[in-house]
Design a protein around this nucleic acid. Structure first.
Lengths: 176, 176
DNA sequence: TCCTATTGCGACCCTGATGTCGCATACTTG
DNA sequence: CAAGTATGCGACATCAGGGTCGCAATAGGA
């Protein structure tokens, strides 16, 4: 796979790509440019997924669920961007998370219509979603969480936390 | 501070410790031994905090709250251990998270007494707690979340998720 | 078929970081 | 005060990894 470990040598990466180190240098003059390109590619993937989820339309909670599902589906990319601080601090990634973007807007909509907790700051809600999506993806990746439960479990955790439900009257989950 | 960046040169670390690189080598022959020692120290800190929270005693939810508060208080250490994959994979850390330890036991107790959701696997609950504690610590660290709200906000998120409360009848939080 | 672009491959240099030593200088402890 | 210990300090060896180059082989298109 790609740059699984940031420690990976260019030789390792080339080997993983079944090519030669020199060839790698022909495409990406320096190591940092390779990293940049990879990061940008991943960020683009996430942006695409976000747009595909049509966040701005429909009830906020449903939109949020679509978004989370979309993110979980590209968990590899999410993990790559957030598993390494040096990558996470990359401008492109920082912009993705820090910015007051469409996700923040969605959260505000959710708070406005009474779906989401207004006592939590949108920035924190957004961050906690990222954190849980990352955790779920990691869990799926290392086999702790079966892939087919991952989404409902993740949604349940994000929406209602880990305590026992007091009353269960809202539909949830996307699979039967 | 310590090994804030794993990329930090030994010279950097020595400088940060206001000492000389050679002196560092006298204490820790190799770089990896230094890392080991630091990781072990952090893990020990966490173990101590866990024990101090007296997890095994009292109502599970209250115990969980004590635990989360304790973890948040040593957020620096938690971040250090989890912000870098190479560190996270360190045997000592892996043992801390993967093991079926006292926290897992606490979660089982919580599920048994009806406090925690039994539809979520204990391993997942444990992981999501780590993820949210990490996220909160990070948020406090970078100024996104005011330090004084961090704990109640974190507990709220862990326990009830991000959706609007249907009924609020349980006391929460440790500060007025 | 021939021409061109791309790749494989090995050799090379260079930089930066690690690890080692020897010595001079405090600092503490008896 | 004296001995032993820890530290500051610079010099040095080593080495892994990044980046460059030239050349042969191959593929692919006109």
């Amino acid at each position: 796979m790609w740059v699984r470990d940031r420690d990976a040598t260019l030789a390792d990466i080339a080997a993983a790509a079944e090519t030669h180190r020199a060839t790698l240098h022909r495409h990406f003059p320096s190591r940092t440019e390779l990293l940049d390109a990879t990061v940008r590619s991943c960020v683009a993937e996430i942006v695409t997924a976000t747009e595909a989820a049509a966040i701005a339309k429909g009830p906020p909670l449903a939109a949020l669920r679509r978004l989370v599902a979309a993110y979980l589906a590209i968990g590899d990319h999410i993990r790559f961007l957030f598993e390494d601080l040096a990558v996470t601090r990359h401008p492109a990634v920082a912009e993705l998370t820090a910015a007051d973007g469409p996700v923040t807007e969605l959260i505000r909509r959710g708070q406005a219509d009474g779906t989401l907790d207004t006592s939590l700051a949108p920035a924190w809600i957004e961050r906690s979603i990222w954190a849980l999506v990352y955790a779920a993806s990691e869990a799926v990746n290392d086999g702790t969480l079966p892939a087919h439960d991952a989404l409902p479990v993740l949604l349940r955790t994000i929406e209602d936390g880990i305590t026992r439900p007091r009353h269960r009257n809202r539909p949830r989950g996307t699979n039967p």
